[in-house]
Computed example of a mutant assay.
Amino acid sequence: MSEKKLLGDERRDWLLHTLKSRGIPITGGDLAKESRVSRQVIVSDITLLKAKGEPIIATSQGYLYLNPNEGAHHEKTVACQHTPDRAEEELNLLVDHGVTEKDV
């Protein structure tokens, strides 16, 4: 990365290339430092890229590009706090939003 600040389309192209090539989550702060802009500019750029259909997700570790050709599988543990009578409601809500349950 050069010492100059990346602007507009050039920066968004760089963001896409960086997220695709690294294949691991990268924080907005790290992306901002590398491109010499604020974290808020990165957040705005990510929003624009997602609006154009780029499969970028925000995780607790940073932004991640999901390559649809790789059949990416992501597994997470969800800890919940609810009364037993609401368990079915919660599980149905998760499934309705595309979550596959592995173990309850």
Rank of each mutant, 00 (worst) to 15 (best):
K4Q: 08
K4Y: 05
K5Y: 04
K5S: 10
K5I: 04
L6D: 00
L7E: 12
G8H: 07
G8D: 10
D9G: 03
D9A: 08
D9S: 11
R11K: 06
R11I: 03
R11V: 01
R11Q: 03
R12V: 00
D13E: 15
L15W: 13
L15E: 05
L16R: 05
L16G: 05
H17D: 15
L19E: 04
L19N: 03
L19Y: 06
K20Y: 02
S21L: 11
S21K: 15
S21T: 13
G23N: 09
G23Q: 06
G23P: 06
I24T: 11
P25S: 01
I26V: 15
I26S: 03
I26A: 04
T27G: 14
G28Y: 07
G28Q: 03
G29D: 13
G29F: 05
G29H: 09
L31R: 01
L31F: 00
A32K: 08
A32D: 07
A32T: 09
A32G: 10
K33L: 10
K33C: 03
E34M: 12
S35I: 03
R36L: 04
V37P: 09
V37N: 10
V37K: 12
V37L: 12
S38V: 02
R39G: 01
R39M: 06
R39C: 01
Q40I: 08
V41C: 02
I42S: 00
I42F: 00
I42H: 00
V43R: 01
V43C: 00
V43E: 02
S44Y: 09
D45A: 02
I46A: 01
I46D: 01
T47Q: 12
T47K: 15
L48F: 03
L48R: 13
L49M: 08
L49A: 02
K50M: 10
A51C: 04
A51N: 09
G53W: 14
G53E: 05
E54D: 02
P55L: 02
P55G: 00
I56C: 09
I56W: 04
I57H: 04
A58V: 01
T59V: 08
Q61Y: 12
G62M: 07
G62N: 10
G62T: 12
Y63I: 04
L64W: 03
Y65V: 05
Y65N: 05
Y65P: 06
L66G: 06
L66P: 07
P68L: 11
N69W: 04
E70L: 13
E70I: 05
E75Q: 13
K76H: 11
A79M: 13
C80P: 00
C80T: 08
H82F: 15
T83M: 13
T83F: 10
T83G: 08
P84F: 09
P84W: 07
D85F: 09
D85L: 10
R86V: 11
A87H: 14
E88K: 15
E90C: 07
E90Q: 09
E90H: 08
L91E: 12
L91Q: 10
L91I: 14
L91N: 07
N92L: 12
N92A: 08
N92I: 05
L93A: 13
L93H: 15
L94D: 05
L94K: 07
V95I: 14
V95E: 14
H97W: 07
H97Q: 11
H97Y: 13
G98D: 08
G98C: 08
V99K: 01
V99A: 14
T100A: 08
E101C: 07
E101M: 15
E101R: 14
